[in-house]
Amino acid sequence: MEVTNNFIIGEIMDNLLPLTNLQEGEKGIISFIRGGRKVIQRLTDMGLTPGTEITVTRHAPFGPIGISVRGSELAIGRSIAMKIFVKRK
């Protein structure tokens, strides 16, 4: 476990992948998020807390990812989604 200035905290496990690797329809459990305080705060406020289940609803080819979380659908930019690490469910 390590605490870094960039708030990268979490367990490094084998079955963790970035959100962008999930296909449409697949579910994942949020493990940890990389990024600055602002982005993490915003994602957390929208419901992406560790242990939360999310479902990927749509993928634009080079675009944002649509995910369903806590009953609503969010569009997350690719650069942010790449830093959201989930356990495939």
Binding site: G36, V39, R42, M46, E73, L74, A75, I76, R78, I80
Partner: peptide
Amino acid sequence: GEPMGLIMEMH
């Protein structure tokens, strides 16, 4: 100010 990527609700 910190630029931020897209985090947007699609209701």
